[in-house]
Design a protein around this nucleic acid. Sequence first.
RNA 1: GGUCCGGUAGCUCAGUUGGAUAGAGCAUCAGCCUUCUAAGCUGAGGGUCAUUGGUUCGAAUCCAAUCCGGAUCACCA
Length: 596
Amino acid sequence: MAAFSGSVEHELRTQVSELLRRRYDQPVGPENILIKLPPPEVAADFTLVAFSLAQLLQQPLPQLAAALAEDLKANWPPLVSAEVVKGFINLTLSDAFWCDFLEQQRTNPTFGRSTDRKPRVLVEFCGPNTNKPLHLGHLRNIFIGYAVSELLQAVGHEVVRVNILNDRGVHICKSMLAYQKYGQHETPESSGIKGDFLVGEYYVRFEQELKKQMEALQAQGLSEEEARRQAPLQREVQQMLQAWEAGDPEVRGLWATMNNWVYQGFAQTYRKLGIRFDKEYFESDTYLKGKELVLQGLQKGIFYRKPDGSVWVDLSAEGLEHKLLLRADGTSVYITQDIATALERWNDFAPERMIYTVASEQDHHFKVLKAICRRLELPFAEGIHHLSYGLVELPTGRMKSREGTVVDADDLLEEMTATAARYSKEHGKATDLSEAEQQELFRSIGLAALKFFILKVHARKRMVFHPEESIDVHGFTGPFIQYTHARICSLLRKAGILPSQPVAVAPLHRSEREVLRLLYRYPATLLDAADQLEPAVLANYLYHLAKTYNQFYQELPVLQAATDAERTLRLHLSDGVRQVLASGLSLLGIPAPQRM
RNA sequence: GGUCCGGUAGCUCAGUUGGAUAGAGCAUCAGCCUUCUAAGCUGAGGGUCAUUGGUUCGAAUCCAAUCCGGAUCACCA
């Protein structure tokens, strides 16, 4: 059905271009012809904006618009009316056109998706530390990254979904050290605590114990900075990091054990969220690489060495600053690792683009990364793209792990599920389902509420997470769209086998047309959302479609329609909406239950 | 201080890339279930699109300046 993605606009542009050339003997390229969608109060399907054409052709606007409307009516068969209002020409297409569109749409299970193949793209998202559970911030990252992956795939890209595990460093050693001191060989099995939460508890424990030690030292008159440096735990954790880097078997063993606990915990959470990765990259694999690349750059004179031995790059030509790449002791810093990881990904998959789903705090970091890769003339440099999203804040302000204001992903999911269950039971919903089916349903409704609440906001915007609003099921929410879908499914079940013949051309009601116009926009919406890497575009569209369908549903009977032709049309129309809602929700990673 | 991002209804957000009288949801108020799932639908009130100037047939949208909020400018990751 790629043929229908914007085909009317395309055809219209070509027509208008040709008609203008004939009438005024002047070439007007199709790209100069502006087609818009009329506002709701105008009962037309498309609007041709003539202001700029009048200017371009040096013709008086009223005459030009009138002439163009006449020419179009005479030469473009699908058109039944062309009304001129000021500089707008409002175009209405025939009922036959829309019925034909519906028939094509409905019988095409992949309507909206593009069949042409586009280059391979790599999308990184999630990026957790392996010392604590996933939290609300990761959820926004994951939802955006996953939906963008789905969108890119839907429009024809081959997509590689990757995760990056920050599995080494001093913060990882903190939970290890605390476990070593206080753990008493506790395991997820022995404690009954999910692995990532168990490790997280020791991370918190470390910070608490360190704080105690620091307070004792500060009481003796040391500054906070000095107290931190001298605290025994701080020294021990540094020693542990060195032991880890030296490959000490005992430390490495503990590290592997605890990380595996965390990974098992993450895997459970990923499953609940309905996401997966094609490949996971571990920082512990790449943190030593990159050094070679820097030394090559140094040889080529792209970088320079300071007297202390550290290596730097001067990015002032790009409006950036001088950036350290290797410390005086030869060890690499974060950005050096990132170059190495990018190279590894390039070697693994040779993607046209590498999309990094990372919070906007790191906007500057990615500018620098890209600039350095350009300097090194790495083949993937231009393909580096930072998919930047704004922080999630709570009504009380930013989440602070030290202040215990972090919302854990697992807890949140449980709450959403419980709320969905409470609502369903209070309202006597889905009572004909089995216990297991109900549980599954509640989970999918809770997930829908959460994902949609986050995805409906444009990624670049900061957002405040209001718990009460996020679990709402009314209005502009995920459950509302699910509900519309489930209601259509119910309708179609009652209708039995759908009439297979194409709909007879019946005069269309206004609300039927509005639904058709929206269905028609689905392919273009997907292209737009994928192009912008913006799931919110799709989320907004889906809400709009569901809302418009509900208006139709309220206004016109389907099963009890007056004529067979109307009944068939409305059933087909409902089926078309059902299909697009299911398709769109799936791209957002939201399940579409058939009853609720 | 430099750079980047944001500022639209009481609150949370859209706004078809410069087009028609700026739209939704929540909240408030008033209606609609003997008919296909009321997690729905209809209506009302609610706006100096941060401010000021500019660009033009036309600006929430583009440009400039200013104000407010946030992020960033680490030998942290």
